[in-house]
Amino acid sequence: MKALSFIAIGALFSTGLVLSGMTQPERIIGFLDVSGDFDPTLLWVMVGAVLTHGISYRWIMKRPSPFFAPSFEIPENKPLDARLIVGSALFGVGWGLAGYCPGPALTSVFTFDTETLTFVAGMILGMVLFAARQLARGRPPHAAVSSWAQADSRSHCSPT
């Protein structure tokens, strides 16, 4: 049952990406082309997604815990740091070059289009390089999350 739920939630996500045209990289490049033929599609997608989740987030977090898990795993609210800025800048350069970010690229992966496969292979290589760099520095390769559950369960360990 849980597996089906994760599959369905993933399918819903990519259906939203496909319907909104995010699997057309030229639309992303059009959005980023502020000095030329600007394409506002991505902006509308963001508005729809943030309005929906911005409202639902407040409602969800009133619950002591998720429906099928012991606690919420929300990214830690750390101060701004160089890692965030440099990482986002590198991502932006790659995004502008190819017109793909991770969601639309993975949604398109089973088209077996050479360019999409090349992008996804490069993306996985980039992630492996990052994990190798973290391990070489003696740090965990994944980002920190804080387990968040109300009342007495707050002190308990997350299932991570």
């Binding site: 739920s5 939630i9 259906t15 990406l17 909104s20 509308w44 729809g48 997604a49 898990a69 606690s71």
Partner: peptide
């Protein structure tokens, strides 16, 4: 695009409400 965005927002909503996870691809 607005409707597609709502579906993405609903997916993120379900992942957080049911499983407590953030939909960051």
């Amino acid at each position: 695009p607005l409707a597609g965005g709502v579906l993405i927002g609903l997916s993120a909503t379900l992942l957080l409400a049911l499983h407590g996870r953030v939909a960051g691809i």
